[in-house]
Design a protein around this nucleic acid. Structure first.
Lengths: 202, 202
DNA sequence: AGGTATACGTACCGATCGGTAACATTGTCA
DNA sequence: TGACAATGTTACCGATCGGTACGTATACCT
């Protein structure tokens, strides 16, 4: 098992959002921007225009709400990833390039807050925490894909190159939120390409 | 201004540690391993064997205690950095190699928790937070040094190489605590050397 | 011995934390 | 009409949060 599946049922587009959905949308916004530990359930229900019992009818605990937030984040993440892949069929190097170029641009926005998965893992170092479990699964899958793409490029040591790309990506997430605009993350695509070039020459 | 100076007075080695010093030592351990937000002041004073008023006599607030923890962390960090530099005088490439080899090894330890500076910045995204201010200063200085070392290596685009090295380092910190032993961080020195190689050939 | 400053402890504060019990209200479908 | 599911309302819980008012002990200096 690797890819995370959504637990929530599909939402009909025309129906008004149910309480659980409203909560999840607000939680996603607040958790991502300010951190999970920094946001209390009271603020979530207040901004969602619902009440606390509604939250606990849809989610067994705040930790599980955080995990649900990350499961949705996971879906959106792979949508973006697959978009970059689909833009350059059969050309993994260009796929990586497209994905990293977009990351590099996003990191230059003023309120960039990095990767929700990465941040959650930092906030919850304890093994087995519901949020951390989702985060770890996402990162394992990302590593697997990057290594596979490195192999498809014909790299001599594909695992090392895949891991190197992952290091650059995580570095971009973090330094993006640390330095803001003008930070090191803006050169992530360029550095990745240099690393790929060096790895293919072997 | 760039380098952070220690505010705390020097500690006499033979005297028994004062309350403030005991608190700072315990806080350093707990904050690093479990996160700053995850640890309350009550637990700190309990494990330090002191009382809460002692904490607030030595530190104006928990946020400032966190900042003091990071100032001490900063000193230790540059000690390790300068150690790697001193081991290879006049050879910045080997200096980077030594520093990253040590990071790569540390990330493979079972309870590795990444960089206290990086983690604090993730925990406190708000601009101006005392802990974040210290963290940002540390990272700016690291960036400055890496770029200077890249220039000393004779890289064509030294700023890009320096930033690439910073991305790899931050990636190692994060993926070290995300993947544990066997994770991508173990290849950080190898990938950095490939990147350097590619950047010098230009 | 007496004063004084430093260092520390006991006990407490209001606010917020995550979470729940019990009941009222609403809209939908049969 | 009547049953059911979903949500809101209100009030509450014990625990923990960061922080403080105030009294006490100890050591040093004169």
């Amino acid at each position: 098992m690797s890819r995370i599946k959504s637990i929530e049922p599909a939402i009909k587009a025309d129906e008004p959002p149910r309480a659980g959905e409203k909560i999840l949308r607000v939680a996603r916004d607040l958790f991502y921007r300010q951190g999970i530990r920094a946001i209390g359930v009271d603020e979530i229900v207040r901004r969602a225009g619902v009440t606390k019992p509604s939250l606990y009818r849809s989610f067994p605990s705040k930790d599980e709400l955080a995990a649900s937030y990350l499961r949705r984040y996971d879906l959106e993440f792979w949508d973006r990833f697959d978009e970059a892949v689909a833009a350059h069929p059969g050309d993994p190097r260009a796929q990586i390039g497209a994905f990293l170029t977009r990351i590099g641009k996003r990191t230059q926005k003023p309120d960039y807050r990095g990767c929700g998965m990465t941040n959650a893992a930092v906030e919850y170092p304890e093994h087995g925490h519901p949020a951390r479990v989702v985060s770890e699964a996402n990162k394992r899958e990302l590593r697997r894909r990057l290594r596979a793409m490195a192999a498809a490029m014909g790299a001599g040591d594909a695992d090392t190159l895949g891991d190197g790309l992952l290091l650059l990506i995580e570095g971009a997430y973090i330094s993006g939120q640390l330095f803001g605009a003008g930070g090191p993350a803006k050169s992530v695509a360029r550095n990745a390409d240099l690393l790929i070039e060096a790895s293919l020459k072997k």
